[in-house]
Design a protein around this nucleic acid. Sequence first.
DNA 1: ACAAAAGTGTTGACGGTACACCCATGC
DNA 2: GCATGGGTGTACCGTCAACACTTTTGT
Lengths: 269, 269
Amino acid sequence: MGIGNVSERRLAPPEVGVSVVVLALGPDATSSRSRLWMPLVRRVRQPFLGRWALPGGGLNAGRSLEQSAYGALESTTSLHPRYLEQLYTFGDPDRSCGGLPMVSIVYWALVGNAEARDFREGDNVKWFPEDELPELAFDHRAIIDYALWRLRTKIAYPDLAAKLVGETFTLSQLHDVVEAVTGEQVDLANFRRRILASGELEDTGAKERVGHHRPATVYRYISRAAPGPWNPYDWTGSAPDTPRDARSPDGDGRPADDDPLSALMPTSR
Amino acid sequence: MGIGNVSERRLAPPEVGVSVVVLALGPDATSSRSRLWMPLVRRVRQPFLGRWALPGGGLNAGRSLEQSAYGALESTTSLHPRYLEQLYTFGDPDRSCGGLPMVSIVYWALVGNAEARDFREGDNVKWFPEDELPELAFDHRAIIDYALWRLRTKIAYPDLAAKLVGETFTLSQLHDVVEAVTGEQVDLANFRRRILASGELEDTGAKERVGHHRPATVYRYISRAAPGPWNPYDWTGSAPDTPRDARSPDGDGRPADDDPLSALMPTSR
DNA sequence: ACAAAAGTGTTGACGGTACACCCATGC
DNA sequence: GCATGGGTGTACCGTCAACACTTTTGT
């Protein structure tokens, strides 16, 4: 543990870890609408002992960064995200707050309603609504803001909303998610057409009645994965179904600044 | 965060470093057009001794990641990029090739014609055209492919093309850059309109005569950066892109472009 | 019949593409 | 004049927002 004095620390290799910003839909006390919640864990060490922080952990040798993120999330919160993507790597010196230089590879994740129930709440692990966060350790507040920005700019893509809402859903539910995330109103009629035209939704045949009105057809998200050599990991080896949708680098007309990494990562061979 | 709030770090800390994919325009032996070139350095250690690899280095304690990338680039190639952005962090176990676990925080950079002349070529540092790369060390080939993909999908934004071509330029030059990068033909008339309509170009008043024909007006890129400090809650995703320059990090090394990180990085204090 | 949500049709604005056309310059 | 690249005009097409409209359900 005790690694010498300050001057020695500056030369020491930096600490490296992964952190995860996890986002899920939850109730809004007032408006009956949904809003975003995220799990935080209380720190049990210095610095920032007692402060809330993002779930995270060290790198597991022998596992990919993504697997490490998945594992860190599972061990701290027992959550199994439906979506997991690298966000950014932070490593500026002044974020270490006097400690060792600290590099955090941050992922962001979405969990559906079903998965969110796996969550084990405790004194040191709790959900917080996105707009009522406590004081956070390190620069985690800024990281969260960035993750939220990323979600809001990408939520237009059907798959992201689908990850948040769950396995199957009606178009109204999907629509509500988008409105809850962006905070803006979206014309339902046009939303419906756009989404259906994307070809990424499949009619399950089921119908769902919300009120006592006309039932809505229930859809499922289908990944239009490239037929190529795609290796569906299997982050944990234990997760029953963690279908991460494969998105081909160019296969679809998606301009997104998204990652084709899936296809070119060394594992894909 | 990283400082294992849960499981202990089981193994030795991984090696951490930065690497940079540098892209610049250069001549094409045949077609008189331009194509992309990039500098590589020959490894002088195991593993992959003698193989070509991306310029890179370790993290400098007391410096931001971006500054470390900038510094690594300067010390290996003496290049000063006009644009520098974090690309992705690689850390899968099978990229270490039997050595220690290795995490590479990869940046990508653009240098203009003027800056490219600072380059010191040597036996162990050379430019290579993008489509005639030698065998590369580690997974650097895949990393480069990803950086190229990123460039090609983002080149539509005027600022990127401007970084490649230099301080001032004619619309034809800018157009040539885009065609060289994407490999596709772009209607010049429409290109001109689109670019000018973006409001990111400014007429310098100068004219430039290439052949013995009508002189072309010379433009300069002007960043439409929002004046004043951003409100972290203002990102509502409206602005898809906020151009920026990568300047010498002793000013302020700021990250990325399509993201608001610039505003929230700890250094901004 | 009525209310409320599901789902459809229609229109018009806007942005981008294709391509014809005029302008400036040196020979 | 004529060749060459710089620069403009215009018609067309696809996409999407706005919003009126029809359908299906339970009471």
